[in-house]
Structures are given as structure tokens and as C-alpha cells.
Design a protein around this nucleic acid. Structure first.
Lengths: 205, 205, 205, 205
DNA sequence: AATGAATGAGACTTCATTCAT
DNA sequence: CATGAATGAAGTCTCATTCAT
């Protein structure tokens, strides 16, 4: 019985190793060639595996990228879900500044793979859907935060939470993409400072 | 002699007609199928012309799209170059509101072809370069406007004109793309109002 | 000792069970998808067994079908070997009618798997050989019956037993395939009656 | 103007030549390898043409075979439509004998390509449909002939024209396939004689 | 006996592009 | 200028089969 289990897990182990080999090769090729130019053939060759092996583990190119970015995507969700319960304008600003900082920091850390993601968004409906989901989660979160701030008399009431949330996230997102495209040549602190200052001043009393 | 000239211009006329036929067909197919799925073959068939004819007039698919959107691009340049010399915060707000309005109005008018452009930006380096040019023109213009406002003591001085300009344009741009994707279901006025209000309040004293 | 024997036969039992599971799944998939579109992969999945398991029991797709239709093939052999010793034209007709009836009845009963067999005949040399064997057995049997009838002055002597046997069986066979293709929408009695009447009148005095 | 027409027809000529080259190569490869084993790649290589060229002229493998057998198929239609207006049993027999003779003669002449057709019938729905069409045309024709003979009191009335027609054609068809499979080793005259004799005796008074 | 991950040959198909007319 | 037949590179994906456990 133990034997049986061992056999199984050994196999599973090998399978996982192969999968990781594929993902490693994919990461390399994607970053090197970009999403469009990358072919499954290249990934397989780089992974030094058999031709059909990729198809044992993944359905197609999109599927590989999705698997590859799962972790990063989850980190985005975490940032989107950061709690927001300020009692003063200053506290709000600090919290917002933190969120923006984490967001752009993540962009910097995962710069190269996110550059691939940006390209893929324009080409793979599935990747696009994934990103839209993240976008929506952020926008909804921000809209709630704005509503909360208005209800607590911290923010101007003449602002549509959803539209303002969109506008705010869109700014952030575009800086995210800009960061992924320029190799570390941007000063994140400046960006965070400017963005937050203007946003808070425009929204909070 | 006159005969010769006539023959020549007749040829030129025909050539222009052919080119327009191609552009007309391209517009149709692009809007119908999107940038990626559109093939030169399809455009040619739709234009009821010979296979090689497209290559007489255009280098490739990107080239066709570029030609197709030239007018729209120029309209964007015009909006980017709108003059900005306000003497009061109110005047600034009115001018800005006008610019945003024109910008998003253009998005609505050219909705379908701009949807193609968005797709193409992620796939064609040339189209991307074209759009980046427009983006830069806008950002630079806005940065100048901010600097002007700061120099004239209308705007807060603690803001980096370039970063603020980017953030502001990025919001606008993302709404632009959102408008191109949703068939006229968005209330432009609301968007313009919210965006401008927050921006002006965040930037102007 | 007994224990050892038990262990062995238990293994054999399991093996037989696995084999039957495979055959059951194969029947289902073959009938569902047809011979060509059926893949060993599908059969294995449907049987919920391991990928390599099929190869322990069968050599390939053809081999599985062969095993699957063994029973039906044997029933055909039985019908082909039906005794024929009539003393009058009427007796001959009754016997022939019976044989044809059994033949087409079997077609109706095993309709779905025979439809697969027909497809496989055109694609698998082994299945084709199997069917040719049955065909030959029938033709030879009929030729003998004709010779017998001629020797006993029941049938016209101006007929080549082998050619006549072929012609007669061919008619029957084609009706067999037609029956397998149309779901029970054919009136077997009418077919049997017409075929036999014409055959007997054409052959027997 | 003449020039224009000439240019066109020269092109068309070349195109037709290419098509014929393809068909010639296809004929060779089909006969050599059979339908299943033949690949478009092989045909193209044999025709010494470019890879995509086959797809300019034909949609797929089936399409090539269809084009290749068009002539033969038409000859079958001609035989199926042979007129039948006998006034005596003898005349009927002569006419039928002629039709059967032509039918099997055609099989002999086009033996090799028909062997491919038989294989293809079991694999390509389109080829199957084509052959079913021919089969139906024959069966319908024969059924009409039988009806005519019954109405003119030449044939026994206790026979269903459609079923008898099928049975009769099925015999013939199976001999056709047998002929295509055995290289000219069959004596057509014997077959024709036996088939016709039995059929006429079984049907005609 | 059973397993199932890995393999890789190879079929199919599309499409941008060329070039002779 | 216009044409369109011909080209062939390139990529996707399937599936029978092997073999170590």
C-alpha cells in the first residue's frame, strides 16, 4: 500500500517537475520574445522536452501564460482587497499611498512578465478576461472606499464613486504599464506622491 | 501634350480610386473582424481587386490601418494642441472641460475604428508608435498647461507637471478605450464632469 | 498451496474483468463515434483505466474491434453452415427463406455494432480479412447447395454454382448493410420474400 | 484588348495545366498508396509543385479525388440512364445483358481508380454521398424498368420493383468491387451471363 | 497486471508575398 | 498600374505507443 502511494507520488513529483520545467522555459521565452512571437515549439525546445509533452500539461499558449502569472495575479487581488477604514483625511491619504505603492512596487518587481501580460491582453481573450477581472475588483473596491469616505463626511459628495474610482484606477494602471515597459528607470516614489496628492486633494475635504 | 497629361492624370485618378476602394474594404473588414483576424486576402476579396493590387498601394496590414486612421489621428493632434491661457480657475476648468469633451466625443464618433486601433496597438509596433506619439503630444501639452497655471499662481506648485499630466491623460485615455468598447452606452457628460471636477480641484487653488 | 492458487485465479479474474471493462467501453465509443473517429485514448478514458492498460490486452484498435465482434461473427458462421438437403423446390425455398431470414434478423439485432464493422472493413485490413472469410464461407456453402440442387435435378444446370452463389450472397450482404444503416425502418419480411422468390424462381425448376 | 484576353487565357491555360499536373500526380499516388495512406504532401511532391498550390485548386483530399473521378462517375450515370423499352422477354434479356456488360466493363477499365473509390467510400462522407447518388440512380432506373415490364405483362407481378431493383443492383455492384480488386483475373462474360440468366428467369415470364 | 507521463512523427492549413504577364 | 497563380515557411495539434515504476 505504502509502495503504491510512493509510486504515485514519485510519478506526480516527476510530472510536477516537468510542468515546472515547461513553465520555466515558457517564462524565459515569453520574456525574451514577447507573447505574440513565442511559439509552443520554442518553449518545448527550450525545456528540452518532447513535442507532445506541452500538450499533456497545457491546452495552448494562453493556458501556459495563465499558469505562469497565477501568482502575480493573486498578489494583485490581495492589493485590491486591502482594507480601507480611515477616520481622517490624513489617514485616508496614508492608506491610499500605501495601496498605490504596493501596486506599482508589484509592477516593478514583476516588470518583465507583466510586459508580456500587457501584450497578451491585446491578443488573448482569456488573458484579457483575467485582467478585466482584476480591474473590476480594483474599481469596485475603490468605489466602495469613496462611498465610505463620502458617508463619513471625509470626501466631497459631488463625485460619482464609480466614475471617480475608474478614473483613479486607470491612472494607476497606465503607470503600471509604463513601469513594465521602462526598465527601472522610473522613480516610483515621485509617481506615488504626485498621484496620491492630487487624488486626495481632488476628493477629500 | 495635353493628351499626355490627361492620360497621366487619368491613371492617377484610377490609382486613387483603387486605393480608396482598398481603404473602404479595409475599414469594413477591420471593423467586422478586428485587427488580428483581418487578412490582406480578405480585404482584397472584399474590394474585388487582384491579389497583388494591395501591395502596389500598401506595404502590409499595418500600413493599411495607418492610412485608414490618418484623419482621426490628425483630429487627436488638433485637440492636443488646443490653446490654454486661462486667467482664473473657472476659466481653466471650462477650457479643460471643453478639451476632455472633444476628446471623448471623438472617441464616440470614431468608436468602431478606434476599437480596431486599440487592438492594433497591442500587436503592431508601428501603430503603437503612432499612438505613443499622440499620447506624448497630449502629455507634453498638458504638462505645459500645468506649468503655465503654476507660473500664474493658479495651480498648486507641489505637483510635477509631467507626472500630473500623465496621470490626467491616462485617465482620459482609458475612458476613451472604454467608450470604444461599449456601444454608446456611456453617458459622456457624466464622465467629463466627474473627471474635470476632480482634476481641477486636485490641481487648482 | 490453495492460497497460491487462489491468488493466481484472483489475478486472472481481475484481468478478465479489466478486459471486459475495456470491451464494454470500446463498444460504447465505437457505436458512438464510428470506427475511424474512435481513438484508443477515448476507449481508455471511458473505461476509466490507465493509458497503458489497453496495450496489455490488445494490440491496437483493430484488435479491440475483432474481439468485440467475435460472438456476432460466430453467429454468422452458424448461419452460413445451416444444413441444406431439400427434396423439392418448395422445401428448398422454405430452407432458403429461413436462412435469409436469420441472416437479416441478425443484422437487425446487431445493427449498431455491424455499422461499425462496415466502416472498419474499409479501413482495417484485418477486419476486412475477417469479413472476407465469412463471405467466402457463405459463398462456398451456397455454391455447394446449388450444386446439390443441380445434382438432384431441382435446379437449372445452366448456372455456375460459384458465380450464382456470389450473386445471391452479394444481394443479401448489401441488404444487410442497408439494414445496419437505417434504424429499424426496413420491413425484413418484404425483403426476405422478394429476394427468395426471385432467387428460387431464377434457379429452381 | 486582344492582348488582355490573351493574357488572361494564357494564365488560365497555365492554371489548368497546374491543375492537371496535380490531378495526374494524385491519380498516381492514390493508385499507389490507396486513399487513406495518401497525403496531400505526397501528391504535391509528386507533382513537383509548391506546398500551397494544392490548396489553390482543391479544398482537401476528398476534393481531389472527386475531381479525379468525375469522368468515371459520369459514365456510370450514362449507363444507369440507358433506355429500356423491350417488347419481349428476349429483348429484355438482351438489353439487360448489355447494361450489365457495360457496367462491369467500365469497372474493368477503371479498375485501379475504382479500387481507390471503394476505399474512399468508407472514409469520406462526400465520396460516399457521390456513390450513393449513383446507386440510387441505378436502383430507381431498374425499378422503373421492372414496373414497365410488369405493366407490359412481361414480368411477374408478385415482385416489388424497388426491392427487386435493389437486390439486382447490389449483386452487380458487388461484382464491380470484386473486379476492381482482382487484376483482370475475372471472366466478365461468365459473370454477365450467369447474373442475367438468373435475373431474367426470376423476373420475366 | 496496471499505470500514465513522455514522446515525436507528421498531417493539415493559412497567408503574406513574389513575379511574370 | 493591375493581376492572381504559385509559393513555402511556419505553427498547431493529435495520437499511437513506449517504458519505468
Amino acid at each position: 500500500m505504502t509502495n503504491h502511494i510512493n509510486t504515485l507520488s514519485q510519478r506526480q513529483l516527476k510530472s510536477v517537475q516537468t510542468r515546472n520545467k515547461l513553465l520555466g522555459a515558457a517564462r524565459k521565452v515569453f520574456i525574451d520574445q514577447g507573447f505574440q512571437k513565442t511559439t509552443i515549439t520554442q518553449i518545448i525546445k527550450d525545456a528540452e522536452l518532447g513535442y507532445g509533452t506541452a500538450y499533456v500539461h497545457f491546452k495552448n499558449k494562453d493556458d501556459i501564460l495563465i499558469a505562469l502569472i497565477e501568482d502575480v495575479m493573486n498578489q494583485f487581488y490581495k492589493i485590491a482587497d486591502l482594507p480601507f477604514r480611515p477616520t481622517t483625511k490624513d489617514e485616508a491619504e496614508r492608506t491610499i499611498r500605501k495601496q498605490v505603492g504596493s501596486f506599482l512596487e508589484l509592477a516593478k518587481q514583476e516588470q518583465r512578465i507583466l510586459a508580456v501580460v500587457e501584450e497578451a491582453i491585446g491578443q488573448s481573450p482569456i488573458v484579457q478576461a483575467k485582467w478585466n477581472d482584476i480591474r473590476e475588483r480594483f474599481v469596485e473596491g475603490i468605489a466602495k472606499d469613496i462611498t465610505y469616505s463620502q458617508e463619513n463626511n471625509l470626501a466631497y459628495p459631488d463625485v460619482d464613486p464609480l466614475l471617480a474610482g475608474k478614473g483613479w484606477f486607470y491612472s494607476n494602471e497606465m503607470f503600471l504599464w509604463e513601469i513594465t515597459k521602462r526598465d527601472g528607470k522610473m522613480n516610483l516614489e515621485d509617481i506615488v506622491h504626485n498621484l496620491t496628492t492630487m487624488y486626495v486633494r481632488g476628493l477629500y475635504k
